[in-house]
Design a protein around this nucleic acid. Structure first.
Lengths: 406, 406
DNA sequence: TTTAGTTCGTCTGACGACTAAACAAATTAG
DNA sequence: CTAATTTGTTTAGTCGTCAGACGAACTAAA
């Protein structure tokens, strides 16, 4: 049965065709190599219809025939697989101190991965947009030079982004009501592919649901572990958007009213209890907390070193932070009932020491212990998760039936 | 564009037809009385197609022609409206101390509303199922006697209900792994209409989104204020289901680790801070807390009386409870970004005293004060919200294109 | 009263997409 | 070499929508 998005949204034949093309495309993505007959049997579509759909997809260079089966009774089947090569999707991730660009072809292989430094807070939004657009243009040029067509470009920003691509608030970049999407489209010279801007946690969870260890999970939450803590939420297979487009703002929920002061002015926010700055300052008390926006990687490395060396103070601090994080994770678990909660960002290297405490906290808060609950695990994607997710949104759009025209 | 539910789910003509029938039905529901031409103009469907769809809907007795327009230039239009009369949907709500049954016709008018006492904890699950089925059968008989066909029956239960209609856990009823749906279907003698079982908060939020003060809101959260606190969540127009089917379990998130003891064994749970039992025991300290499952209505009435009389202790207690509730509401707001949060159950009569503190708390926790946030308001539906929601699920199913066959 | 203009809803023919069934092609088993 | 099997195409048919033409019914104005 077809489901509808909103009020008056009638369907016609083009929709049927698009739906079925997408069904075949997704089936081949998940079951390549496979034959037309197999697709027909698995999807319930008629063999003739599958032939027609496959011919269409081959015309659009989305599928490719790849040899025949052998040594089987009956006529050999011509196998099909994705032909990712003629297309690519680009994702860019904006951070306080660097930009990441990733390009992925239609079959999911990464064809480009760049990282360049970037003065997030030093630059004006207009300068930043110029820098992002420059990186985007270079990525586009590279991809085009390789003979691919660009299907879309999506930029991830650590902040609140509305549905029009306006960055309403991004504290770590010092932005307020910046129409980044508009600026990018202008700077790229009205490109013929769609340009999008989205929250970095949203994109990261999309990357996780497509390329992560739990790919395909329909109820998934991703917690960013950067300077702040944010959540990207996929429920029932769809990214949660909310009314204004700002869900998952989990960083400032109160974990402990008597806890440490938070830079938001309140006490005991999740970010103040379990944010990266809190971890670093607890494990390395002698470190000078010089502003919030320097690259924290060296400090994180030091934390890992101390934990590996079984430094008691470090282990104690990480356990306590893990309990605090576990409380936040419990709230997410109670409210959303996800199957998996993935910890990302700087939580990943610290996961061996954080996870046990998180699990303990989670287990102690179950309504009924035997009912089970979400699994918590560290992301296997590296720091470019949001960039990869930016590319993934473009591919999702294709998978939903918005195919490129030949 | 059509969206698909999951993997291999191809579309065909029947889907197109069902989608468009539902589009017309929903349009008429929202804009009755209206003409065929108006439907065509508003939906983008062809006039001929609309004529065909409308004829189909009239055949199924879902629509009815109602006179002509007059005093307008041009040929007068034959107006259409919903013909609710031949069908009805039934919802039943199970509580610790009573059952509520509601029947609603297709146009949304309530055609039946019963309440009968019920020994929730005293009876075995089998006895309870028999009692529920008996009430259901009586409601069905009455509806059928009135010449209506029953489109479905859905039962709301205060507890965790999985997608198969098994009540996994319902502390207030003392149930554990009760296959209520199976028992009801058996007791009703394999009826020819669908029978469903769902969580009461889920059903209440569906009722709210169809009949409440904020009907039509696509991002809506409903907080039950019964013995426990649960949340029903609609995001992006869809009921949030979660992985196991147990989202919105908000009652035992920790608001204050140093707060009052909760019957779950922990401290400072939302339920212990802002649950009805907490309110009663704080406002009426002299009341003996004799078990948890007596009808709390008299105590609530007393609380209202004292608040009306401006009893300082009562006002103070309600304000503090409101702040606690506000913290819970803030968490929901941060995580889900809803447009409206509706307080239900026993919160409704106390809303005049709780809401100001809730609003204050919510405002103080905003990331950016000028970005706005959710509106909080008390439900205008009475205690049968979940029962009404049970009927609403059935109507939603029709609105999604699963029309009754003539 | 007549005529023009407007709007409604149906009718007609065409088109596009899917289905079922027959069929041709290619291979293995014996 | 034949029978069995499986693949994928072809053919005829069905169904729902679309565009445009058309008749019907009404108002407004000459």
């Amino acid at each position: 049965m077809i489901t509808m998005q909103r009020g008056p949204q009638p369907a016609d034949f083009a929709d049927v065709r698009a739906t079925n093309l997408a069904v075949v495309l997704r089936y081949v993505r998940g079951n390549a190599p496979c034959s037309r007959a197999e697709i027909a049997a698995a999807t319930g579509l008629n063999k003739a219809t599958v032939s027609s759909l496959v011919a269409d997809l081959i015309d659009r260079r989305l599928l490719r025939e790849t040899g025949l089966t052998e040594h089987r009774i009956g006529r050999p089947a011509t196998m099909l697989m994705l032909d990712g090569s003629p297309y690519a999707a680009i994702g860019i991730e904006v951070n306080a101190d660097y930009l990441t660009a990733v390009a992925v072809d239609l079959a999911g292989t990464q064809v480009l991965s760049w990282r360049r430094s970037f003065a997030g807070l030093g630059a004006s939004p207009a300068q930043a947009a110029t820098a992002i657009a420059a990186l985007g243009r270079r990525a586009v040029n590279r991809v085009v030079k390789d003979g691919r067509r660009v299907l879309g470009l999506t930029v991830g920003v650590p902040g609140l982004v509305d549905s029009a691509g306006v960055v309403t608030l991004a504290p770590n970049l010092g932005w307020r009501d910046v129409n980044l999407r508009g600026a990018l489209i202008r700077a790229l010279g009205d490109p013929d592919f769609p340009v999008g801007v989205d929250n970095d946690a949203n994109l990261a969870v999309l990357a996780e649901s497509r390329y992560g260890a739990h790919a395909g999970t329909r109820n998934l939450v991703y917690l960013t572990g950067e300077v702040g803590i944010g959540a990207g939420i996929i429920v029932d297979g769809r990214l949660l958007r909310g009314h204004r487009g700002f869900p998952g703002e989990i960083g400032h929920i109160t974990i402990d009213p008597g806890g440490p002061a938070c830079r938001c002015g309140r006490r005991g926010c999740l970010e103040a209890v379990a944010g990266i700055a809190a971890i670093v300052s607890r494990v390395i008390p002698e470190a000078t907390s010089d502003g919030e926006l320097t690259d924290l990687q060296p400090e994180i490395d030091e934390v890992v070193r101390r934990a590996r060396a079984a430094d008691p103070a470090a282990l104690q601090a990480l356990t306590e932070v893990g309990h605090g994080l576990g409380q936040g994770v419990s709230i997410v678990a109670d409210l959303l009932d996800p199957e998996v909660i993935v910890l990302g960002g700087y939580f990943v290297p610290l996961a061996p020491w954080l996870l046990p405490a998180v699990e303990t906290e989670l287990a102690s808060r179950r309504i009924a212990p035997d009912l089970g609950g979400p699994q918590v695990s560290a992301s296997i994607l590296d720091h470019g998760a949001a960039a990869t997710g930016g590319a993934a949104t473009v591919l999702d759009h294709v998978d939903e039936g918005h195919l490129p025209t030949p």
